[in-house]
Design a protein around this nucleic acid. Structure first.
Lengths: 252, 252
DNA sequence: CGAGTGGTTGAAACGTGTCAATCCTAGTGG
DNA sequence: CCACTAGGATTGACACGTTTCAACCACTCG
């Protein structure tokens, strides 16, 4: 497992942030922009498999994902792992560490990632001087919460097939909305079946068989280490789920 | 199902808030107290079974539980229900989801409850003028998040017995910490087995058999419509879980 | 070329769900 | 005071979904 974190030679200034250009994300006014610009202390480039945050450790930094995929998870003592959610561009990493001294979950990069690095300490200044950003932070936290609600509903009450369909629909939709997919070429969700299993609360073998049913129905295609959604509508039908229409969302 | 919400004849002023007296909760300074006092527009007294928030509806109010037990849940179209978390005194109700649009989950009273009522609109003023309270809000949201993380781990990866043990340990611990238990008499968690089942993601029958195993082991006792934890330590052992030590927590 | 990771498959064991009764208790109205 | 009722808890039998075990294949990388 690659543990190397390298600081980028070139650091994208927030003024030129590629995310901000996308219509999904709300704009900053110049004051906010100034603060966030100074809030950002570095940029991290990560290889797939890198651990970003380790459960049980103190972690003085916060991150915003700029590019790439990651995932949050927890493990039990005997190694059973539960994936809690996925990290996409615009997502804040490590917010809940602020209260408890130690992090209560881990985060790992799924693909190459770029992260903006912030100093946790400076959150106080953010709350003091930038109410609108403070509001955004709360907004972000409560959005993550509602995603977890839906996941919990899924793992607790949906069947294996529904769960799988929901997960792929959910990820495909989020990926689309945040614009992680390449302009050209297949829009692939970069997960192994082990990740899917650990997200759905199923065994690897059963996950494989469930995904196969989706493949056979022509709804998705499984690639080398990832999958591609072919029939969005059918997935929604199977899952019994629709993405809720979101307007612009904030990000720090 | 009783749907009546009645406004209290007597309204406890925030200055005399009984929760604030407890050592679990952090104190307000006088400015904060003044704001919260004006933020609170009413007090609600609810009968068991009352729906507080309805999924899919806009809900212009926020609440803080002052007394009693409630629970948050989601349901699928065919009626399958998943309990997401329980509401205890000091908990904020209605923060999750898009801060200003439709609710993505429902909330129901489990016992008689008392709620403080706030106007969602005035959140803006809170963020503008009271950074410390804004910070608290984020703290609260991200705490709920870490609880959901643990629940998701539980439902996804723990066995039925571990899950049941975890849930009872978790609730017993929270109840103890917030002081909902009566000073005298048995400390009972006011859930039916149906609630437990819907929290654990299990069927009612299997939940019954699982709880019976815990009863037979003498770890808990099941009462009429609730349970009592007898051996905290053993419960932790079975669950493979320990409550993380929290300092004082904020509440609005 | 061998090793490692990820995916695939079948069979058997096991945990959970479903169905269908029964019991218990608190609350209701005659 | 006694049916009567309704919600909650309990139980056994059986069906079904999921896990586990144990292979094997395909592909990439050093």
């Amino acid at each position: 497992m690659a543990q190397s974190k390298s600081f980028a030679a070139v650091r994208i200034p927030c003024e030129l942030c590629p995310l901000r250009a996308r219509e999904t994300f709300r704009d900053f006014d110049s004051t906010e922009l100034g603060f966030v610009s100074s809030f950002k202390i570095a940029e991290l480039l990560l290889e797939p498999g890198t651990t970003i945050i380790d459960e049980g450790q103190r972690h003085p930094q916060l991150y915003t994902a700029l590019a790439g995929w990651g995932f949050r998870y927890k493990i039990l003592e005997d190694g059973r792992r539960q994936v809690l959610n996925y990290v996409l561009p615009g997502d804040l990493i490590g917010l809940q560490g602020n209260l408890m001294s130690e992090m209560l979950h881990s985060v790992e990069a799924l693909t190459k990632m770029t992260l903006c690095v912030f100093e946790r300490e400076r959150l106080t200044a953010l709350f003091q001087n930038h109410p609108s950003l403070a509001y955004d932070l709360t907004w972000i936290a409560s959005r993550e919460e509602s995603i977890l609600d839906e996941h919990l509903l899924s793992v607790g009450r949906r069947t294996a097939l529904e769960r799988a369909a929901y997960l792929l629909a959910f990820l495909d939709h989020r990926a689309q909305a945040t614009g992680v997919f390449p302009e050209e070429g297949p829009k692939v969700l970069p997960l192994t079946q082990q990740h899917v299993a650990d997200t759905l609360g199923l065994s690897l073998v059963h996950t494989n068989k469930t995904l196969r049913r989706l493949s056979d129905a022509g709804v998705v295609r499984w690639l080398d280490r990832g999958s591609e959604v072919l029939e969005r509508g059918k997935l929604f039908d199977i899952a019994g789920w629709q993405p809720s229409v979101e307007g612009m969302r904030p990000f720090i």
